[in-house]
């Protein structure tokens, strides 16, 4: 059996990858994907830890949480993408770094 630590390291790295994506990628749609990665890292963590309770027992609590939070993440993406549509109309590009008229 694979020890728990490996799974934890995996979700932690997934989380960092999500942040890395948000911190470096220029494409706005990729940024939305970055948020999805972050949420999924958290979701995976829930699933992993639900099995940590007792051998042979999986907690339904965590699973119900994951089901709900997936839907929430979908909502966020939907709203994000509609805003991206308008950002594209105004700026004529999907490059997030061009969105820097507000500063200072």
């Amino acid at each position: 059996m694979i020890p728990l630590s490996y799974y934890l390291a995996f979700t932690a790295i997934l989380y960092i990858v999500g942040i890395y994506c948000l911190a470096t990628k220029r494409n706005m749609i990729r940024l939305v994907l970055g948020i999805e990665i972050l949420v999924n890292a958290a979701n995976l963590n829930f699933i992993i830890l639900s099995a940590n309770w007792k051998t042979g027992f999986v907690d339904p609590f965590a699973h119900s949480i994951v089901i709900i939070s997936t839907a929430l993440a979908g909502c966020i993406s939907a709203v994000a993408l509609t805003i991206v549509v308008y950002a594209y109309r105004h700026y004529g590009t999907l490059d997030a770094r061009k969105l820097r008229r507000l500063r200072g």
């Binding site: 989380y15 999500g18 970055g34 958290a42 963590n45 965590a62 805003i83």
Partner: peptide
């Protein structure tokens, strides 16, 4: 639009971070 997009990305990242923290707490 620009402000809203920035707000959305940062705040959602924050929400996801809360969720991650919550998962550890649950564990």
């Amino acid at each position: 639009v620009e402000a809203g997009f920035k707000y959305l990305v940062m705040s959602s990242a924050g929400s996801a971070t809360i969720l991650y923290g919550m998962s550890i707490l649950y564990g």
